[in-house]
Amino acid sequence: MLDLHQIFAMQKRALFFLLALCALGWGFTPYQSVFAGIAVGAFFGTYNFWILVRRMEKFDRSISEGKKIGSLGTALRFASGIAAVAIAISLPNYFHLISTVIGLMLPYVFLFVERIVSHVRNR
């Protein structure tokens, strides 16, 4: 099974590929606000995943050392999601709200697909 750093590295590669597709879509289609919303949402979603990876490492260290267990950064990730949506709401001419929300969820979709592919390969 992969550790969190390897999973996050794959997430970053997927994000860069997605951002390249969004840049192409933004430049060559009439749906600039949709592609910009997906890009902003994916950026903030990957940031949330990075926060989760950092907090899980800290959580694991606390458990192994027998120290008090801290939070997993739920409030910070929630605030980051609110910030992405606030950007989309405040600039509706540039960012599509629904695509921003979809972009926020894309890193978790990538994670789910990666787990399915890993499971199929290990059969």
Rank of each mutant, 00 (worst) to 15 (best):
M1W: 13
W50Q: 08
A20E: 03
G41N: 04
S62H: 10
F49G: 02
S33I: 01
F49L: 12
V40C: 06
F112A: 14
R61H: 11
A83R: 10
Y47C: 10
G45N: 06
E114C: 06
I63M: 14
K12V: 15
F16D: 03
P30M: 07
G25Y: 09
T29A: 02
F8T: 11
N122G: 02
E57T: 09
G81V: 06
T29C: 07
Y31W: 15
Q32R: 15
R54V: 06
V117Y: 09
G45H: 08
Q6I: 05
L15W: 04
A36V: 01
Q11C: 10
A79L: 13
A84E: 01
G70P: 04
P107H: 05
I116N: 12
H5A: 15
G81P: 00
I116K: 09
L24A: 08
S71Y: 00
P92D: 15
I63T: 09
A42C: 04
A42T: 04
T46L: 09
L15D: 01
L104R: 10
K12W: 04
L21T: 07
A14E: 03
I51C: 04
F78M: 11
S71T: 10
Q32Y: 13
S99K: 07
L76K: 06
S64H: 12
F8G: 02
G45T: 00
V85W: 08
L2A: 12
L4I: 13
G37S: 03
